[in-house]
Amino acid sequence: MSDDHSWSWSKEQSIPSDTAAGRVLLEELLDELRRQDWEERDVFGVHLAVEEALVNAIKHGNQEDPAKQVMVQTHVSATAVKIEVTDEGGGFDPEAVPDPTDDENLEAPSGRGLMLMKSFMSSVEFNDAGNHVAMTKVKGEED
């Protein structure tokens, strides 16, 4: 999706490395989706993906360092939503995260957050450094 989409609601905010602060922002986004008549299934998917992205940024990226911030940009329209999350950590290689659905990883407690983000959103892209993720979801699109 191009960035010139006609967003009807946008917000850019820098939050501390604290999941409670992330959830305030997340609830605002979800309220806006519901206000724009997004279906609950789509709202659930966005909720799950943004929750996982914020936890990744705060805990794994910034290591919950109170001196570091997480930048979150959100855009909503009647038909699409875009969320970008940037942390101040060293980044990671998403390609190196093992597939949790491989037989040998089925009982391993890792990799599911990233997988759920990719499953419930239309697109998930990381920058080369691995400390910035941009996710979009098109309303009503089958995952």
Binding site: F44, H47, L48, E51, E52, V55, E107, A108, P109, S110, R112, G113, L116
Partner: peptide, 16 residues
């Protein structure tokens, strides 16, 4: 209504 991947991981440990 909602389970994060962290909750799923806890269930995996419980299963073990």
């Amino acid at each position: 209504e909602f389970l994060s991947s962290g909750a799923l991981n806890k269930l995996i440990f419980l299963d073990r």
